[in-house]
Amino acid sequence: MINLALEVGKTAAPEATMFWILGPLAVIAALGMLLVKKAVHSAILMAWVMITLAIFYIAQGALFLGIVQVVVYTGAVMMLFLFILMLVGVDSADSLKETIKGLRPIAILAFIGFGGLLVSLIGRATLGHQIVGLDSANANGNVPALAELLFSKYVWAFEVVSALLITAALGAMVLAHNHRVHQRPTQRDLSILRFRTGSLAETAGLANPGVYALHNAVDVPALLPDGSAAPTSISAMLEARGDVIDSSPFQLGQAEESEGEDK
């Protein structure tokens, strides 16, 4: 597989085909990142851009980087992004209406100006020599060649970067650590609190949700002696989401009737 990819990289005509298909797709996906409302969609488009780039790396003789791109970026970093997105709220859609007056037209102008300048600069740039290619550099394989550079010429930078990684990991831990201001209330504390406040009726705990012969689930409220549904027996979250099932069909008389009907 790897050899195949390397072969693709080496042959000019397939590479051009690959570039002209994937290049515009990457740019379009990147533009889409800016235009879609939901952050999750942005993340998926981002992942697509990264995979495209990984292919580009491999096509240009950077096999190791291509694999790392897929594993580290598309795999780890993007998963981290999605994870945080889930933490913050997956479904939330951003308003694309600009709130800072005058920023949008400036941004469009800047986009045109910056892009235009960069592209025209690259177009004007002259290398001064023919394109060398990595054939000789990668003669013993890309990974050993990179390893040789990393652990000789760049070993100092490598060590520093490792220190940076550890520092970042520690920093993230410190930032994410939720410092408790008060002591967590124990069962005993909660019990005392129950007796001190609220009604005595709740001191033994809240009622369980409805458990019936036909139907037992957390989304059905229990019945009070007078036959009405007990609102405290189900989770408030379920009620808020509208997932509570009406318990009246499961009342005693009703159930007998339905049994009788079945017969």
Partner: peptide, 27 residues
């Protein structure tokens, strides 16, 4: 640029960039 110039220094630089980017993302 690594490909154009025929040495791997550019790739090493990209590798470091990835590491730094990872740190940045975490923090």
């Amino acid at each position: 640029f690594a490909r154009i110039n025929g040495n791997l220094d550019g790739q090493v630089m990209a590798f470091f960039t990835m590491v730094v980017a990872a740190c940045e993302v975490v923090v």
